[in-house]
Amino acid sequence: MNSLFEYTLRLGDDSLMIGHRLSEWCGHGPILEEDIAMTNIALDFVGQATSLLELAGKFEGKGRSGDDLAFLRFDRDYKNVLLVEQPNVDFGVTMMRQFLFDAYRKPLFERLQYASNKEIAAIAEKSLKETKYHLRHSSEWVIRLGDGTEESHTRIQEALDNLWRYTGELFYSDDVDKELIAAGEIPSMDGLEKEWRQTVNEVLAEATLKIPESDWQFDGGRKGMHSEHLGYILTELQYMQRAYPGLEW
């Protein structure tokens, strides 16, 4: 297996899918200012997906471009975590999904910015700045909704209860990352989950939210086994490229 390709693909697919989900909000946000804010975040993710998938294509060495990877794979070949493909449902679910993901992405990029692989490091360094703002934005909203009204508290608690089972997969590790760490391409991920957990504990406490007790966790995304939702995302995402193969747009 080409671990550099696989690893970069995972990062790229995470950005691609969560960017896609956020972009679905454009024009439908709860207030104009927030519509603009979510679109900014979506744009950051589309940008990250573009650089990461380009790089993955380069690592693969088979001449596939970032667009080829984004638009022309089958579902089993997408390697994003299940969390990022979960539907928006409402603003609370969207913000909770974002928060749980941002809290993982920040310590991840903090490590990757020092990767000896310079290309990964460069993308991580740029993305880290974006991620810090994303985390600030999503944390503030989780706190507002958790400690806002009774209705918002109930809704965001439910969002947390439903999304919690997808968070374990954020720390999924297999031969791909082990090999890259051993080869010194990327730094060790020791303490990543602990840092994530600390951010999550702090923010959820301030939001007066309770972490679900169930520790049952789903995974599969990293291996290409997805939820039903991915198929629908791909139906839209790939429509043009599949209907009119091989054209310039």
Binding site: S23, E24, C26, T39, L43, A49, L237, M240, W249
Partner: peptide, 24 residues
């Protein structure tokens, strides 16, 4: 906004998002 999720490539998707955002 209808076409953001169906944009044919990543560049077009980013441009369209940025444009619709400008309208907001």
């Amino acid at each position: 906004g209808n076409w953001i999720t169906r944009a044919p490539n990543l560049r077009r998707k980013a441009v369209l998002l940025a444009k619709v955002q400008d309208e907001a």
